[in-house]
Simulated scan of single mutants.
Amino acid sequence: MYGRYTQELGVYAKEEAARLRDGGVRDGGGLRRNKSVRSRTVDLLEYEKDPCAKCQLCASRCQKFLISRVGEDWIFLILLGLLMALVSWVMDYAIAFCQEGRKEIRSQKKT
């Protein structure tokens, strides 16, 4: 059953690719190009309405670039490492603060 399913899925994928290819020729340049032009005009309209839209657009493009190039797993691991470094620094600071407090308490008891 598994072999038959993958074969039918492969045939379906080929037919779908051919259909999309033929549809792109009839539309005069492909579907993706038209969508990107439309999305750019929508982005420009949003920029005219909201001054922060340009920053949001840039942030979303950077996010898409990072996820496509680096991958979600590596981003998660980098953020996890940064979080662990922050936790370690906070613990070191807290321990040093407690030690200073202990020294002050001892010095007050002696006097």
Rank of each mutant, 00 (worst) to 15 (best):
E16Q: 11
M84L: 15
K14Y: 11
L77S: 10
R106C: 04
I67W: 01
V25I: 11
G101P: 03
D27C: 11
D92S: 14
G71Q: 00
E48R: 10
S107R: 06
G24A: 14
G3C: 02
E48A: 14
V25P: 00
L82D: 13
G81F: 12
R38K: 12
V87P: 05
R32C: 08
D22Q: 10
L44N: 02
L44G: 03
V90W: 08
K14C: 13
I105W: 09
S68L: 01
Q63Y: 06
L44P: 04
G23S: 15
D50Q: 09
Q56P: 00
L20H: 05
L45T: 05
T111Q: 09
L57K: 05
S68D: 10
E72F: 01
Y93H: 14
L20Y: 07
D73Q: 13
L86M: 11
C62R: 09
P51K: 03
Q99V: 08
G81L: 12
C98D: 09
E72Q: 09
E15N: 08
G101Q: 03
V90N: 07
R19G: 11
S60V: 03
S36Y: 12
K64S: 15
K14P: 00
K14V: 12
F76I: 04
A17Y: 06
I67Q: 13
A94G: 03
D73T: 14
A96I: 03
A59V: 03
N34A: 15
A17W: 00
Y2P: 01
C58G: 03
Y47I: 08
L57V: 01
R32H: 13
D50A: 12
R102I: 07
G101C: 03
M1P: 06
K49C: 10
V25Y: 06
D50S: 15
E72G: 08
G30H: 02
S68H: 09
D50V: 02
R21Q: 15
V42R: 08
G30K: 04
E8K: 06
N34W: 05
R61T: 00
D50G: 11
S88A: 13
S60R: 14
Y2W: 14
C62G: 05
M84D: 13
G101R: 05
G24T: 03
V37E: 03
I75G: 01
K49L: 15
A18H: 02
I75W: 06
Y12D: 08
E72C: 09
R4Y: 12
Q63H: 06
T6C: 10
L9D: 09
A13E: 02
F97Y: 12
